[in-house]
Simulated scan of single mutants.
Amino acid sequence: MNEVRWGIIGTGSIAQAFAADFNYAQTGVLRAVASRSKEAADDFAERFDIELAMMDYFSLINSHEVDVIYIGVPNSLHFELSKACIMAGKHVLCEKPFTLNAIQAEELFELAKKHNVFVMEAMWTRFNPAVEQALEWVEEGEIGVLQSIQASFCFNGSQDPSERLLNNELGGGALLDVGIYPIFLAQLFLGKPDFIQNQALVGDTDVDVFEQLLLGWDEGQLAALESSIISQQPNRAVLSGSAGYIEFGQNWYQSKNLTLVKEDGAEHAIEFDVPGTGYQFEIEEVNRCIDEGLLQSPNHSWQDTLNLLATMDEIRQDIGVFYPGEPEPCEHDCDIEHHHHEHGHHKH
């Protein structure tokens, strides 16, 4: 395998966790970091022992020193920066949510195909050993027929309205930031839901701060999910089946322990002895895919990302949360007008 050379865009908390875990990855080398501030880039490079610190994103995007770029900046910038990387022939690992909506994601995947570059949403939890183990147990029929999923991702964040999570301009809100994880878990095991019900609280800054979701599938399965940026939760996840259940430990999305409980009460607990938060596993997946000449990961495919965004688009449409540049919620009425216009009934 040729050593895959990485660059990081952004120096915030998620980029820091990613850089720290890079040390635990078996493959790849972290070469460069870019920030809009020279000082931030220099500090980050020094802290994580990175050779190149760049003071603007485009120096990194156009650099011949890197093959793949990890994008760890606010949600509103994901689309433009991913697009720039793809156009420059760079492979991309973009933090979740991949884009603000499914339409943006479709455009990027088309572009990636055209430019022949690998692109993946950084759904790092997918590659967590505990999630891999749960998939294996379910596929082997250890809990019988999977019937329901319960999962939450809630925390009490900053109440400062200018803060990223509460900022509509930056693509803030509980759903895109943390709600995406429980939805991901449900869709990983059950696919895209056939119906969605939700109750949500939208705050003063026009972003959702709390929601409870019920996803349903035509075969009868249900997922009860919760996400919040205003309340604490143990953030456990349970997969319930006809012959037992699987329970993830606290903060399931990065949990290192997992318990299989059979219907007779027998328990099988596994503890994964892995360092860091767990970002190293997605790094290794990207390196493997690039080495094999793939444009997408079979384990978190473009379709998986589109399905996630489509579900979140539907929920946001329903609760009335829109981001700058998105079509406003007149769509249904617009369609009716458009339809009439075609038949010559449109009144001016």
Rank of each mutant, 00 (worst) to 15 (best):
V117E: 07
V117R: 02
F118P: 07
F118N: 13
V119L: 09
M120T: 13
M120F: 01
E121S: 15
A122N: 15
A122P: 02
A122S: 15
M123D: 04
W124Y: 14
W124H: 15
W124M: 15
W124T: 13
W124F: 15
T125S: 15
R126F: 07
F127I: 11
F127M: 09
N128R: 03
N128E: 08
N128G: 06
P129Q: 05
A130V: 00
A130E: 03
A130D: 03
V131C: 07
V131S: 04
V131H: 12
V131G: 06
V131D: 08
V131I: 14
E132G: 02
E132D: 10
Q133K: 15
Q133M: 07
Q133S: 05
A134N: 09
A134L: 03
A134H: 05
A134D: 04
A134M: 09
A134I: 02
L135A: 07
L135F: 03
L135N: 08
E136W: 11
E136G: 09
E136P: 01
E136Q: 13
E136C: 06
W137R: 06
W137G: 07
W137D: 11
W137I: 12
W137A: 04
V138K: 02
E139Y: 08
E140D: 15
E140N: 13
E140K: 14
E140H: 12
G141A: 06
G141V: 11
G141L: 10
E142L: 08
E142Q: 07
G144M: 00
V145Q: 01
V145I: 02
L146G: 00
S148P: 00
I149V: 15
I149Q: 00
I149H: 00
I149T: 01
I149S: 01
Q150S: 14
Q150P: 00
S152K: 04
F153C: 15
C154M: 14
C154V: 07
N156T: 14
N156S: 12
G157T: 03
G157L: 05
S158M: 06
S158Y: 03
S158C: 08
Q159I: 04
Q159G: 05
D160I: 10
D160M: 04
D160P: 03
D160G: 12
D160A: 12
P161G: 02
E163Y: 12
E163V: 10
E163T: 10
R164Q: 12
R164K: 10
R164W: 12
L165V: 10
L165K: 08
L165S: 09
L165A: 10
L166A: 09
N167A: 12
N167R: 08
N168C: 12
L170K: 15
L170N: 13
G171S: 05
G172M: 01
G172H: 01
G173Q: 02
A174F: 00
A174M: 03
A174N: 10
A174L: 02
A174H: 07
A174W: 05
L175Y: 11
L176I: 02
L176V: 05
V178S: 13
V178M: 06
G179E: 06
I180W: 02
I180R: 09
Y181I: 11
Y181V: 10
Y181K: 05
Y181W: 05
Y181E: 06
Y181N: 13
P182N: 05
I183E: 00
I183H: 01
F184P: 00
F184R: 01
L185F: 06
L185I: 07
